[in-house]
């Protein structure tokens, strides 16, 4: 997994609640057997005016100029600011893949769908929960200050305005943080406990032999 230590970037505000993973990456793009190639279809139905299909040349498709991600001033944004329950719905990990491959390193929202939250951290996409009032403040600053940027310090668990005018603290499980900061492979870590797994399994299947 890619390491995450600190990141500074342009913030794009997506001002809707309950953005589901179907919206982040529509189903027709889930037919791929690869992990890559999802970026141009991130938010496909909102981003383009036509109906997207796999294999299309996305650079030739008509853009929806009213969609915030298409606005000139947000080109190159790497931090997505969202509302409550971002990433609800389907468990498709293609959603964090699409966001990352579209250039995002961080998503900030008051809350996230539980599966999406885990999927994102498992890919090094840092999902940060802030208080409602803090998120409101970030939306306001995005509107007020063209080129509004934030810096995220994972070790210190801080989101800070680049001009240093304010900083918000966020929570993350310490074992999660450790994995992200070091870029450790989750599976290798778990396999490091193979003896404990084997011991548990032997006892478990002996007590409930119908599971074997």
């Amino acid at each position: 997994m890619e390491k995450f230590v600190t990141h500074t970037g342009l913030v794009v505000p997506l001002d809707r609640a309950n953005v589901d993973t179907d919206a982040i990456i529509p189903k027709q793009f889930l037919k791929s057997i690869k992990r890559t190639g999802y970026g141009p279809n991130c938010f496909d139905e909102w981003r383009y005016l036509d109906v997207g299909q796999p294999g299309m040349d996305n650079s030739q498709r008509p853009l929806n100029r009213n969609f915030v991600l298409n606005e000139q001033r947000f080109q190159g944004a790497t931090i997505l600011l969202a509302r409550q329950n971002f990433g609800c719905g389907s468990s498709r990990e293609h959603a964090p893949w699409a966001l990352q491959q579209n250039g995002f390193r961080v998503v900030i929202a008051p809350s996230f769908g539980d599966i999406f939250y885990n999927n994102s951290l498992n890919n090094g996409l840092l999902v940060i929960r802030l208080q409602d009032v803090e998120v409101d403040r970030l939306f306001a600053d995005c509107a007020a200050f063209p080129g509004f940027q934030l810096t995220v310090y994972l070790e210190a668990q801080l989101v800070r305005a680049v001009d240093g005018s304010f900083a918000f603290a966020f929570d993350i499980a310490s074992s999660r943080k450790e994995r992200l900061v070091n870029g450790w492979d989750d599976i290798s870590l778990t396999l490091g406990r193979s003896d404990a797994i084997r011991a548990f399994e032997t006892k478990h299947l002996a007590a409930q032999p119908w599971l074997a």
Binding site: S91, R92, E93, P96, I115, N118, N123, D186, I187, T190
Partner: peptide, 12 residues
């Protein structure tokens, strides 16, 4: 679960 977790369960 997501696909990374699918792989995690397969492996561990």
């Amino acid at each position: 679960i997501g696909t990374s977790e699918v792989e995690h369960v397969m492996a561990t």
